[in-house]
Design a binder for these strands. Structure first.
Lengths: 233, 233
DNA sequence: GAAGGTCCTTGATCGAAATCAATGCGCCGC
DNA sequence: GCGGCGCATTGATTTCGATCAAGGACCTTC
């Protein structure tokens, strides 16, 4: 459990320019607030404003809500990442904890107003937005044109890159999210996700240990199963 | 047909700050090139670099390509809009003309390098990225969790807002894109798109004239059919 | 370490959209 | 005005993933 100044210091180190004056840093700090969010809880936000949220610890999902509790996980966000949580428009969005998480919350408008003449901060925000846009476009392709197996394979490749680690010589992931979260992210049902885990397991592309553990013996092979473009095409 | 300086002037008026010095404007101008792209042609780009493209005239689609010619239209872009076209990664992207289009092309890296200390230009880029991210997230929700009818209704609402106009008292759209483009944007087939047009027509939510003309007598009703959140929820 | 609950897996059936297959319409040149 | 062609519509059938329905595994709690 971090104190607010510790959290902010971490945020500043990653997302604010190194040469910022102490006074300027304090002005940004004054705009932030800390929030601890328990598992499966949503971060409480003013629905009518955009927010900028820094993930200090845990793991989170950004969820878009349509009518009839049909939810779509629009993205997962892990420690040290910055997320833009949009205000309610055609649909509403919530940032929810997949694991107990410590978050740093800013009003988007206040933050950009303070950063309006600081190129380094603006560049940092732009990079954050570009990363999210790029992942979101990849997701559109997956949701629009890929089969269930390809979607799960692509998801696992992306997770391996973002939160995977080497364990006794094999690329491994400890998935923080439930099958429901994965299903809501891939536009599938939990049953279909479960079946695709079985398919990939039978193809020898992965091994599972318990609910959360996944070992990937051959990342390239899994990428191929995800329908990624090869050198040739 | 615009000359390159005319095109650039238009771009500068919309996306560059008004108080930029003439010298600075010329430096940006030196980075751009004009490109005319015919119907269904792709803009020729260096595949290994990101680009920034300004649409001067016409209508364009940003297409993500997976294996087996399964294409996903990731977004449509109309005159005065700025598009980020990503370099090839897991998938490749092309910007293609839906109608003959005049485009202004920049290398993304060069452009941001020149803008690196100019907050106003950076803010303009950030706003562009945020707009695209927001539309992309809405698309993820539609592709992941909505029915064919809801997707088409949502698409038509969005087009009405972006390129619709009032004609003899009724909100009307002259769709620049084919059924195939719409299908590739909504993650459906052309046959299904066609059937959903019939469904919405039979529901009295729209009238069609020829292939491209759409009249929307009641936008609110169409929005409701798109599964948008209502005030209550 | 047994009990209980939650989450996950597997199986059987159903349904929305894809695919396959004609047919129709609008738009072009002639 | 009349073909002809490309695009769009409509119909018949198939398919992949959703839904419905049991089991089974893992983790917590006592």
């Amino acid at each position: 459990m971090m104190t607010f100044p510790e959290q902010f210091e971490r945020f500043a180190r990653i997302h604010l320019p190194a040469n910022l004056s102490d006074a300027a840093i304090l002005r940004f700090q004054a705009l932030g607030r800390a929030a601890a969010v328990g598992r499966e809880e949503a971060l409480a936000l003013n629905l009518h404003a955009d927010h900028l949220v820094f993930v200090c610890s845990g793991a989170t999902k950004l969820v878009a809500h349509a009518s009839d509790r049909r939810d779509q996980v629009v993205g997962f966000h892990f420690p040290d990442e910055l997320v833009v949580v949009p205000a309610r428009a055609e649909h509403s969005y919530t940032l929810e904890a997949v694991r107990p998480s410590e978050l740093l919350v800013f009003d988007y408008r206040d933050f950009t107003e303070l950063a309006r003449s600081d190129p380094a901060v603006l560049r940092s925000l732009l990079e954050c937005a570009r990363g999210s846009l790029s992942r979101s476009r990849e997701k559109s392709l997956a949701l629009g044109r890929k089969t269930a197996t390809e979607r799960l394979a692509g998801f696992l490749v992306a997770m391996a890159v973002r939160i995977g680690s080497m364990r006794d010589g094999t690329l491994s992931i400890d998935l923080p999210m439930s099958r429901r979260d994965i299903a809501d992210s891939l536009g599938l049902t939990i049953e279909t996700v479960s079946r695709q885990f079985s398919v990939l397991r039978e193809l020898g592309l992965l091994e599972t240990t318990g609910k959360a553990g996944v070992r990937i013996p051959d990342l390239r092979a899994l990428e191929a199963r995800a329908g990624y473009l090869t050198e040739a095409a």
